[in-house]
């Protein structure tokens, strides 16, 4: 992700690559998956959808140091 911790709405390959290397990745419930790849920022519990992107919210939850 960029310095603002965002990805555009459909950067599927980047979303997968980042999530595969991310120690904090945690899969969301299946009905909220969007990406085809199970391990992807787009399927992570810590992502928040905005109008045209997703935002990583992990920094707001330092108590979950996975």
């Amino acid at each position: 992700m960029n310095s603002k911790k965002t990805l555009p709405a459909d950067a599927w390959e980047r979303g997968q690559a980042i999530a595969l290397a991310c120690a904090a990745f945690e899969q969301d419930v299946e009905e909220e998956w969007v990406a085809q790849e199970p391990v992807s920022c787009y399927n992570c519990r810590y992502r928040r959808f905005t109008a045209a992107a997703i935002l990583c919210m992990k920094s707001r939850f330092p108590e979950n140091p996975k």
Partner: peptide, 18 residues
């Protein structure tokens, strides 16, 4: 059924607002 609602920063949804 899951119903997608408005995505807007002023709405306090967890991550997807449905």
């Amino acid at each position: 059924t899951r119903h997608q609602l408005y995505i807007h920063e002023d709405i306090p949804y967890t991550s997807h607002n449905s």
